[in-house]
């Protein structure tokens, strides 16, 4: 009996499986997001306090959720690389980082635009916004470290170490930012509970965004597998030609 991750260890099998899955996931993502947008704009009511700006929530909250989930995925893949030496683990980690960073940026951007009407300013040092900002810095660190190492194998493993260090410290950073925030200002109104009439559209959007993330991640992984294949073939080609030239 092989587990699913073991069976996926073969890149060729991954390419076959993801080739059939990708259109399905992408299609499901589009359907969920379109339905979610319809709900967000035409069905869900305006908030009695925030008015229409509450509609930003339907993209802000899923983006923030994906920002965290993507980092968890990077950490998990890094663990898989360092401990189990799973051949696709680094492909997964490398593919997830830029996508996660993009959604982290979106969470910050939409949060700032949501905050302007609510708080009267684009940026407040709210505990949640600050934590997401730090998460963005962690993503930047991962990307910078990987891009500054030429040896791909080395880059993969060192980035994995950094991702695991980051995920170890993340709860502590979150805790310290919360502490710092309560010390300096009363908590902002963003913690208010979500009204049931908004919960369903939000859930649909969250599912749609998650499916979208998986589709993007799968596509990025496929690209990465291809890139490595091209690289290996080029190396083999050069070696063969050298051998021919030597004869």
């Amino acid at each position: 009996m092989q587990t699913l991750t073991q069976r996926l260890a073969n890149p060729t099998r991954f390419m076959q499986l993801s080739g059939t899955l990708l259109p399905i996931v992408a299609g499901a993502a589009s359907v969920a997001i379109l339905y979610g947008l319809y709900l967000a704009f035409f069905v869900s009511p305006a908030d009695y306090q925030q008015g229409e700006t509450v509609r930003i929530m339907y993209i802000h909250v899923p983006s923030a959720w994906l920002a965290m989930m993507a980092y968890a995925l990077v950490a998990l893949s890094s663990f898989g690389l360092l401990v189990f030496r799973h051949p696709l683990a680094d492909v997964s980690a490398k593919a997830a980082v830029p996508i996660g960073a993009a959604f982290t940026f979106l969470a910050l951007f939409t949060g700032s635009l949501w905050g302007k009407p609510m708080w009267g300013t684009y940026w407040v040092w709210d505990a949640r916004l600050t934590s997401v900002l730090v998460l963005f810095f962690l993503y930047l660190g991962l990307m910078a470290l990987r891009s500054s190492l030429e040896d791909e194998n080395l880059a993969a493993k060192l980035t994995a170490v950094l991702a695991l260090v980051g995920v170890t410290l993340l709860p502590i950073i979150k805790f310290s930012v919360d502490w710092w925030n309560t010390l300096h200002q009363p908590s902002t109104g963003m913690t208010s509970t979500v009204d049931p009439s908004m919960r369903w559209p939000l859930l649909v959007m969250a599912i749609g965004f998650s499916l979208l993330f998986f589709a993007l991640h799968m596509k990025a992984m496929r690209n990465e597998v291809l890139r490595r294949r091209v690289k290996a073939l080029r190396l083999a080609d050069v070696a063969r030609r050298d051998a021919v030239a030597a004869e």
Partner: peptide
Amino acid sequence: MDLGPHAAFIWISYTAVVAVVGGL
């Protein structure tokens, strides 16, 4: 569809998401 006095914020937010995801 009337999005109130802060319509611009809503549209910019959604445009940003479309632009970033589309770019990806």
